[in-house]
Every structure is written in structure tokens, then in C-alpha cells.
Computed example of a mutant assay.
Amino acid sequence: MVLAGPTAVGKGTVAAYVREHHPDVWLSVSATTRRPRPTEREGEHYFFVDDAEFDRLQESGELLEWATVHGRARYGTPRGPVEHSLERGRPTMLEIDLQGARQVREAMPEALFVFLAPPTWEELVQRLVGRGTETEAERTRRLETARTELAAAQEFDVTIVNDDVARAAEELVSLMVDPPAPTRTTTTKD
């Protein structure tokens, strides 16, 4: 399963809920060139690498997908751990951005692509401002990117509105157990 959505929609929060309540689901850990936020831990939230190491991973084909996000930091999904999890038959989830989801669709079209949407645009703005981790310029850039990302929701198999973290996470997990037909697109909300 590929989970994507706009900045500040709560992808990381929903993924953390899945990690805590469904340890049978394997969640990929992305590599990134951005600096860690105060609460983030190496190897759990991200693999924090410098530009030279990211270049090496990219050039050697060790990334399933990669992208420059918000015009600044690069993010990518290490290929080996994903393939290992799938080979073992574990439910596997990638929490990535829109650019990465498009690359994974090319590499693994059989995956289920889920778009996590905010209840409203205003709620998305409030979440971004409320977390207080970006400068005003960064927030502006992220909100511009979010408008583009929201417009891409129709590219996904399923859209889940993140109006409640537990409900959204449980719906994600249920989709891994009983995925919809490949051509079906649904939008759900309590």
C-alpha cells in the first residue's frame, strides 16, 4: 500500500498509529536530506543522510522512488527493505509524497494507492501552522505544493479523509486485508 497526501495532512501521525496498533504491518522508513525535527529519531522516522549519501543511494539504484520535496530536501524509499517485506508476505505500507507515489505506480502498479485528504483546506492550513516547525516562507511553499497535491487525488485508488486519526488508520489497515477492486475509487468520511 502506498499512502500519500498533502503536507500536514497527518500522514506521519496516521502511520505512527498503524505502527503502534498494528505491529504486523511493516512501514517503510524513508531516507531524507532534511534535518530532523526535535521529536524524530534516526531509523524510526527517517534515515537522515547527507547529499553525498543520497546521491550514492540514487545512483546505485537502491531507492525505489525519490523526489525533491517543497523545492528543498530530497526524500527516497530504500528498495531492499520493501522487497524483503513483500517477499515475506507482510502487509507493507509506504508513506510517501505525490512524486514518489507516481514513481512507485510505474515500478509496482499492483500496489494499492491511498490518498489521505484533510477534512477542509482551512484545517490543513491550521495543522501546518499549528505544528510550528516551519518558517513563514517554508509554510507558504508547502501550502503551494499542497494545492497541487490535492488536485492529484483522483490519481489514487482510494481517498480517506483524515478527520480522525484512529478511524483513518483503521480504514487503511482494513484496506490491506480487503482491498477494493483495482478500478474502484471511493471516498470515505464519518
Rank of each mutant, 00 (worst) to 15 (best):
E136P: 04
V114W: 01
K11Q: 10
L63T: 02
H45C: 09
T13P: 00
I160S: 08
E95D: 13
P182I: 09
V82T: 07
P81A: 09
W66Q: 14
M176C: 10
A67R: 08
A146K: 04
L143H: 07
P118F: 10
E136M: 02
P180T: 13
E40S: 03
L3S: 00
R131L: 10
A152P: 12
A152F: 08
M108P: 03
W66V: 03
R41P: 10
N162V: 10
T183G: 14
Y17H: 05
V125F: 05
V14P: 05
A151G: 15
R139A: 01
G61N: 03
E95C: 13
G10Y: 00
A67P: 09
A16Y: 07
V161W: 01
A15M: 06
D164C: 13
T135K: 04
A31D: 02
G130K: 04
A15S: 14
L172N: 08
V165F: 03
T187P: 00
V161S: 03
Q154W: 11
V2N: 05
E170I: 11
A151Q: 13
A101W: 00
E122L: 13
R141K: 13
E65P: 02
V161L: 05
V2Q: 05
T92A: 11
V173R: 07
T133W: 12
R79H: 09
E53S: 07
G100A: 06
P180Q: 10
P119N: 11
A166G: 11
A8K: 00
A111V: 01
T77W: 02
V69R: 00
S174L: 12
R41T: 14
I96S: 00
R74L: 11
T32S: 02
K189Y: 08
H45S: 15
F54A: 09
T13N: 01
T183S: 15
A107G: 07
L3C: 08
P36R: 03
V165E: 04
P38D: 14
G10C: 05
E110L: 10
R41M: 15
A73Q: 12
P38H: 15
R167K: 11
Y46M: 05
R56Q: 04
A137N: 06
E65A: 12
V158D: 02
Q154P: 09
V173P: 06
A16D: 14
Q103T: 02
A67F: 08
R147P: 04
F115Y: 12
L63H: 04
E136I: 03
G5R: 03
G80F: 06
D50S: 08
M1P: 11
